[in-house]
């Protein structure tokens, strides 16, 4: 039972990592850039929902507030692309990496200035309590997290593989100039995917906040999500989820069965291990180009 319990809580945590990783992968798939501020997006999305829902702020009902928050975050992602990232068009990836790290600092500061630095809880209907299933305590929030994540991943996977705009996004990342020749509005496509990833971040934020308290530094969770995205192989949506689940499951088991001090390094050690032996992740998308 012990193992099962750890597994369930690990899976729920892993889903949140997986959702943040989905945000990275979306942007990477469509623009070949990595958004190092994705964790802070998630945190901001959670705080926007909290600001709309909690009684001390606006006090809207949750089921109304959540779509509004998702919409706000999608708009924010789009505007961020429109005002900032679009001007970096064609610049090196390193510039975008540094830029998004800097944006993360700014977002964290703004969230801290508006909602304070103390941990707060979202008045979420998902945080109803626990149910017992065959000796295992299942948090309802955990169940919700797992269900929503799996659905969202499937939806995004179909979106990228089957729809016209999803394919356009992939084409835009593989070769911008060729995509232009094919009549793909590359800039608009990139703006859309930033918006989409903002929305995914908001969903991740809402689910994360339903599981416990949040504070502006929750965005640092993004680093674990990196581990997830890398382990899954950047650029693969199911890979991101799988990576998130692996990291999420490893954590509780490491802290249960390993000596204190060694347990928290387990996800990062795994990340380095994967990078050294399978540098492009478990679901690799890299092929060597012939010159």
């Amino acid at each position: 039972m012990d193992v099962l319990q750890l597994l369930v809580s690990g899976l729920a945590n892993g889903c949140v990592y997986g959702l943040i990783a989905l945000g990275f992968v979306l942007i990477y798939k469509a623009t070949e850039a990595v958004n190092f501020a994705q964790g802070d997006f998630m945190m901001f999305g959670a705080f926007v929902t909290l600001g709309l829902t909690n009684a001390q702020y606006i006090g809207l009902p949750f089921w109304l507030a959540a779509p509004i928050a998702i919409g706000i975050m999608a708009l924010l992602g789009y505007l961020l692309d429109f005002f900032i990232l679009r001007h970096l068009f064609g610049q090196s990836q390193v510039a975008i990496v540094i830029l998004t790290i800097a944006l993360g600092f700014v977002i964290r500061f703004i969230a801290g200035a508006i909602w304070g630095h103390l941990p707060v809880t979202l008045e979420s209907p998902l945080a109803l309590g626990d149910i017992w299933v065959g000796g295992v305590v299942l948090g309802l929030a955990d169940v919700a997290v797992i269900v929503v994540t799996v659905m969202l991943t499937y939806f995004l996977y179909v979106f990228f593989q089957k729809t016209k705009i999803g394919l356009a996004m992939q084409a835009a990342s593989q070769n911008q100039m060729a995509a232009y020749y094919m009549g793909i509005p590359v800039r608009r496509v990139q703006g859309l995917v930033w918006g989409l990833s903002g929305a995914v971040a908001a969903v991740a934020g809402i689910l994360f906040a339903s599981k416990g308290a949040i504070d502006p530094n929750a965005g640092l969770l993004g680093i674990k999500a990196f581990a997830a995205a890398v382990i899954g192989g950047f650029g693969s949506l199911p890979g991101a989820l799988a990576g998130g689940l692996i990291v999420g499951v490893i954590e509780p088991f490491a802290s249960r069965y390993m000596a204190a001090g060694y347990s928290q390094i387990a996800p990062y050690a795994l990340l380095l291990f994967v990078l050294v032996f399978r540098p492009h992740g478990l679901f690799s998308q890299v092929r060597t180009k012939k010159v």
């Binding site: 990836q93 950047f234 990062y268 990078l275 492009h280």
Partner: peptide, 28 residues
């Protein structure tokens, strides 16, 4: 030696992990 096989974003992420690990390794 392992890091040079990566580049761009992968190297950035690997070095982030290194930076985090350094803290824990110093304590250990």
């Amino acid at each position: 030696i392992p890091a040079i096989r990566m580049h761009g974003v992968y190297l950035a992420i690997a070095t982030i992990a290194l930076s985090i690990l350094a803290d824990d390794i110093i304590v250990l």
